[in-house]
């Protein structure tokens, strides 16, 4: 079922398992001195070796899967990126950094990078205030709060493709969106929402907001639950209004949650593919193309595997640089970077 471990792990895992199986339970005090065992199995394996085998047995399969499907492909992407290669035949047309130079010189790719950055900025600029407002609203003691919470989170759980197909139909000429726009007396403003290069990206942003706002709300609500009750009581005693409390107390206390959400939102925006692929396919006239869409267009659609790999590496480098900058300048105050499990001091 799972791929068999290779190399050292192959040797380690079955023996680790067998060692456990043929060892009667009683013999297994963890810190047994190596020479002390009378049974053959334990005298052959010192406690340290056995621990090693157990570790290999437990982590081996996961590491193999990780190596096979993440590490190898990522390294391969780097390798392919310096070749001109159509995915078939030998990898022999070494072109050095030409693919990178070509990508950086292609206005469609640079346009895609710009689009990704616009999407990052607009996602945060739109979803942060909206999400905050809705979270603060839901944090009040209103009726049907649980229901509201479920409803607002629902779009996030739907498949991008499913949501995208519905939105394409909503946005088509004479669809629901047009009907609503006309219904509120703005009939003159109906557009080719997804067909006009000047507004298609804006339309995509609206759909993205609909799809992902729920995540912001849910995360902010979680953060709000961490704000201690007595803070509110104290502020109330001091005669602060609801809005004053939110602005001076709640929102600042929500800082770490907001910054973490910003990170997730940024990374998600950089990878954006599904929704845009369904809504516009990157068009019209490349006005909504993202890096991931460009990558797939060049790779599997046109068979330029070497070139597409260079684009993938560029996408990764851009993501990594942004992630590191974000960690350094935004998340630093939250002590977020520790890889060790650490209880957050709140």
């Amino acid at each position: 079922m799972t791929p068999r471990p290779t190399g050292a792990d192959v040797a380690a895992s079955p023996r680790g398992a067998a060692g456990a199986a043929d060892r009667p339970d009683r013999s297994a005090a963890p810190a047994r001195p190596s020479g002390g065992g009378r049974r053959r199995s334990s005298s052959r394996l010192s406690a340290r070796t056995r621990t090693r085998l157990e570790i290999a047995f437990f982590t081996g399969p996961a590491l193999v899967l990780l190596g096979l499907f993440i590490v190898v492909p990522v390294l391969q992407a780097v390798r392919y990126s310096v070749f001109d290669w159509n995915g078939l035949g030998p990898l022999d047309d070494f072109v050095g950094l030409d693919n990178y130079a070509r990508a950086l010189g292609d206005t469609v790719f640079t346009g895609a990078v710009v689009n990704n950055f616009v999407i990052i900025a607009l996602s945060i600029a739109i979803q942060l205030p909206l999400g905050l407002a809705i979270a603060l609203l839901l944090n009040r003691d209103i009726r049907g709060r649980g229901f509201l919470r479920v409803v607002i989170f629902m779009p996030y759980v739907l498949a991008e493709v499913v949501a995208g197909v519905v939105w394409v139909l909503l946005l088509q000429p004479n669809g629901l969106v047009d009907a609503v726009v006309e219904g509120v007396g703005l009939g003159g403003l109906t557009q080719l929402w997804l067909g006009d290069p000047d507004i298609a990206l804006g339309t995509v942003m609206v759909v993205l907001t609909w799809k992902y706002l729920g995540l912001a709300v849910i995360l902010f609500l979680a953060g709000l639950q961490g704000v201690p009750e007595d803070v509110y009581e104290a502020a109330q005693l001091d005669g602060a209004s609801w809005w004053q409390v939110q602005r001076r107390v709640t929102i600042p206390l929500l800082g770490p949650t907001i910054r973490t959400w910003g990170f997730l939102s940024m990374i998600g925006s950089l990878q954006l593919f599904d929704m845009v692929w369904i809504l516009t396919g990157g068009g019209p006239a490349n006005s909504t193309v993202t890096m991931a869409i460009y990558l797939i267009n060049q790779g599997t659609e046109r068979g330029l595997y070497g070139y597409a790999s260079a684009v993938a590496v560029l996408l990764f480098v851009i993501s990594l640089v942004l992630a590191v900058l974000y960690q350094t300048f935004v998340l630093r105050r939250d002590n977020e970077v520790a890889p060790k499990p650490r209880r957050a001091a709140r």
């Binding site: 492909p73 392919y80 990878q271 790779g299 996408l315």
Partner: peptide, 14 residues
Amino acid sequence: LFPLTVAIIPLFLL
């Protein structure tokens, strides 16, 4: 740190 998108081409070939 490695999203599927970055590895998609070699992954497809693999």
